[in-house]
Design a protein around this nucleic acid. Structure first.
Length: 687
RNA sequence: CGCGGGGUAGAGCAAUCCGGAAGCUCGUCGGGCUCAUAACCCGGAGGUUGCAGGUUCAAAUCCUGUCCCCGCUACCA
């Protein structure tokens, strides 16, 4: 096989805040399929993946998990990630961790270099600071002027921080992107980045933090730790031996620039704006392509633990086997739309594509060789015109797949390969071997047909190997031969004449019964939910121990809500955060009256707001309220509601609001209008 | 008129950039076959491409308007 040059591919490194679900795992599988394909196609491949282990969130999670140190926590989670990656067969060359010594040292050097050359400057970060949460919030994040997280007081504060001067490089980056249309893929994403971020101007990025400790320390100013994204992005070069001082490894010189950064569409911004700019500042060449892949959704929704709809790769593998899982995620994922996974879909695909089309094909072919020729496969040269079409489909598949793979159309490639197998099934029908078997004079023809089938399947599974390595190998073993190299797939007839197939072939995929599987998955879901609740309870206890009682209470509140959702049907009373005691005068200062809604319409540019005209006595007030989710304008008209009438007018979404309609709110945030229990005239005082 | 994605057969998707007989997989119905894992092969039914206009010889595709769904956003007084 000729050497086609080097190919360096990376995935995003997985954030170690918890166990990755199948949507996260998809990226590793996709990367692995591409990489195995490239290797088989003659490239010198380097494949890097890993885990992203710093940051405040991880610091908190470590406490919640009851770990003595963040490092203990990330060691554990990184291990889980690595196990899952291994379980789905990821053939990475390096699994980098951002806590690895070589990475840490280089990130510090990179930071220093940026500072020395003037790309990073020391400035200050101004904003509202919550001491309780040790965090800054922007004005828009505040809730009623209080901290949105803990509800405590915030004060104007200033903290020193390092900033990266983005404006030094933005024009250069815009030019680069315009000159390299293939740089950001799929292309629709390119426009999004340009219009939303680059063209309006990129703000200087705050690249250090002092509010927490779990990060790479800035070595010349150790109050600060390096911003996690600068830390994380650098892995792509540190992992192959980049050295700021010019002593980079041979590996780095060989593989950089990366041929492909494979990432989720949600983090495209960091990879197409900040990362290229960091590279420019280091004087390094740009990666060739950044591909933002879509998401795998569970039944149309994002997976989340609290929704209880998470599907994990290891559960899938236990139920269906590695290759079935790989097949599913690779095949079901469209090129630039989000894909869907459900247990039902998984079973359907498994049965129809894997068991019926492929598994059964291999099984019936081998069975016939054993039955009619005692396992010996031999081309007797008894060709007929029907063979030609089969052969042309089979020998043409490699070229079609190659074209698809060049565009990273992995799902389409798989479809092409399975079309080959379908063609084989049809060939059996066309040639009717069982009829030939009854006629002694057709023995050579029968042998030839079985040879053609065997050869076709071997070409097919050789192409399939990058996507489903285990299946390809098993099939080759069943036929008692080796997988082919890609450069031999366009010619027919390499299966050794007279070779004997296995007398007892391994079944590739046994059909699954839907009901049985659904029963199993229900158990898994139930178990997951309980584990989640348990871990949350433990987290609350651990937070208490660490003195973060408010966070602990938040988790408990949340749990209560979720448990309510989960179905205990008896109505629960709810507790809310108590407010400070007030004097009677404070109460008397508020004027409440009954108002009648005489007109109501939705606020045009808003989803949640309704604008009502409310008659209170002889006056009419215009009041905007965020209740559209629960009430339609026509439901409102004619209702007598409770109104706070002496509230200072304010503008909401550009519309003036002169008061407040009072509602009761339950734990899920559902609203109910407060209405008088007996008939009351408009304007009646509520006291 | 906040940003973005989407609405095509019962389900999941393709074709949309660059107009040219609406296609694929699953399911369903009918037929064939018996080598094989209730499998495989053939055929049928099922769509006014969200809705309404416009451009054109020709519109899923281009233009205008409109309705719904999903993310993000926050303005839920």
């Amino acid at each position: 096989m000729q050497n086609k040059g080097k190919y360096y591919l990376t995935t995003a490194i997985a954030y170690t805040s918890g166990k990755p679900h199948i949507g996260n795992t998809y990226e590793a599988i996709l990367a692995d399929a591409i990489v195995r394909y490239k290797r088989a196609d003659g490239y010198d491949v380097h494949f890097q993946t890993g885990s992203d282990e710093h940051g405040q969130k991880i610091e908190s999670r470590a406490i919640e998990a009851g770990c003595d140190s963040p490092k203990e926590f990330v060691d554990q989670v990184s291990g889980v990630i690595k196990d899952i990656w291994n379980k789905v067969g990821t053939s990475y060359d390096r699994f980098i961790r951002t806590t690895d010594d070589d990475h840490v040292k280089q990130v510090q050097k990179i930071f220093k270099k940026f500072y020395d050359q003037g790309d990073i400057y020391k400035g200050s970060y101004k904003g509202k600071y919550c001491t309780e949460c040790e965090a800054f919030y922007t004005d828009s994040q505040l809730k009623d002027g209080k901290c949105p997280v803990c509800g405590g007081d915030v004060h104007e504060s200033e903290e020193e921080a390092y900033f990266f001067k983005m404006s030094n490089y933005t024009q250069k980056l815009i030019d680069y992107i315009n000159e390299h249309p293939e740089f950001i893929q799929p292309e629709s994403r390119k426009n999004e980045m340009m219009n939303n971020f680059l063209l309006p101007g990129v703000q200087d990025l705050c690249v250090s933090r002092t509010s927490f400790k779990w990060g790479i320390p800035v070595d010349f100013d150790d109050k600060h730790v390096v911003y996690v994204w600068l830390d994380a992005l650098a892995n792509y070069i540190t992992g192959i031996g980049y050295d700021v001082d010019g002593n980079s490894s041979e590996e780095f010189k060989k593989y950089w620039p990366a041929d492909l950064h494979l990432i989720g569409k949600d983090i495209l911004r960091f990879h197409t704006i900040y990362w290229p700019i960091f590279l420019m500042a280091l004087g390094l060449p740009m990666p060739k392509q950044i591909f933002g892949h879509p998401w795998l959704l569970q039944g149309g929704e994002k997976m989340s633990k609290s929704k209880g709809n998470v599907i994990y790769a290891d559960d899938l593998v236990d139920l269906f086997g590695v290759d079935a899982v790989r097949y599913f995620v690779l095949h079901e994922m469209p090129f630039d739309n989000d894909g869907t996974i459900t247990w039902e879909l998984m079973v359907e695909r498994f049965n129809s594509d894997l068991a019926n089309t492929l598994g059964n094909l291999v099984s019936r072919t081998i069975a016939m060789s054993n039955k009619y020729f005692d396992g010996v496969v031999e081309d007797k040269g008894a060709n007929e015109p029907v063979d030609d079409d089969l052969k042309s489909v089979v020998t043409g598949t490699y070229k079609v797949v190659e074209e698809k793979m060049d565009e990273l159309r992995v799902a389409d490639s798989l479809t092409e390969i399975f079309n080959l197998f379908k063609r084989c099934n049809k060939y059996i029908d066309e040639t009717e071997p069982w009829v030939l078997a009854k006629d002694d004079s057709k023995k050579d023809r029968l042998a030839t047909v079985l040879y053609n089938l065997t050869e076709s399947i071997m070409i097919g599974v050789s192409l399939l190997a990058p996507f489903m390595p285990e299946t390809a190998t098993k099939t080759a073993e069943n036929f008692n031969t080796q997988l082919r190299s890609f450069d031999s797939l366009s010619s027919f007839g390499a299966y050794p004449n007279g070779n004997k197939v296995s007398a007892e072939p391994v079944m590739l995929f046994a059909r699954k019964d839907m009901e049985t599987v659904l029963k199993q998955t229900a158990e898994i879901t139930e178990k997951q939910k309980n584990e989640f609740f348990e871990s949350q309870e433990k987290a609350a206890v651990n937070l208490d121990k660490a003195g973060r009682t408010q966070d602990a209470d938040k988790i408990r509140d949340n749990l209560k809500k979720l448990r309510g959702d989960a179905g205990s049907s008896d109505e629960e009373a709810i507790d809310i955060e108590p407010k400070a005691e007030i004097a009677y005068d404070d109460f008397a200062a508020m004027q409440f009256q009954v108002g009648e809604v005489i007109k109501c319409e939705a606020v045009p540019k808003s989803k949640k707001l309704l604008c009502s005209q409310i008659k209170v006595g002889s006056k009419t007030l215009q009041i905007v309220s965020g209740i559209h989710k629960y009430y339609e304008p026509e439901d409102m008209v004619g209702k007598k509601v409770m109104v706070l009438v002496n509230l200072k007018p304010a503008k909401l979404a550009g519309v003036t609001s002169e008061g407040m309609i009072l509602c009761a709110e339950d734990a899920e945030g559902n609203l109910s209008l407060m209405v008088p229990e007996k008939k009351m005239p408009s304007g009646a005082e509520i006291c």
